[in-house]
Amino acid sequence: MNELARVDSEQHGSLCLVRVSGEIDMSNDREILTAIEMAVARETDRLVVDLTHTTYLDSAGLALLLRLAERMQARQQMLSVVVPVDSRVRRAFELTGLLSVIDVVSRSEDALGEIRPGSSNDHA
């Protein structure tokens, strides 16, 4: 794929799952933020941003997530970020202390645990 990053989203009832694959830096952070916010529907209670397939993330990506978290909080929506333990971007979260600011889980199943089979409402 030629784009630096790619954003895919699924809506499962009140839960919105957004997968970001590729690299995030200051050249595409605004686009990605916009794409994620566009994916979040009005009825969404909870947003899960899955960074399992994100291969690069620096302060621009971290700032993006902080900003997203603030906006979600303002709208009283919950945000979880999936960063596997072996992810190449995990160190950035650890070193900047974001693990304590944002809800970071290491497995997408943990974040998606509340989705019951059959209630899937896929808007992808």
Binding site: D58, S59, L62, A63, R91, A92, L95, T96
Partner: peptide
């Protein structure tokens, strides 16, 4: 602003890495 926040995080990352 966004730049200042990014800048701060960046400094921290650089020094840690």
């Amino acid at each position: 602003g966004r730049a200042a926040r990014r800048g701060g995080l960046g400094q921290r990352l650089m020094r840690s890495l």
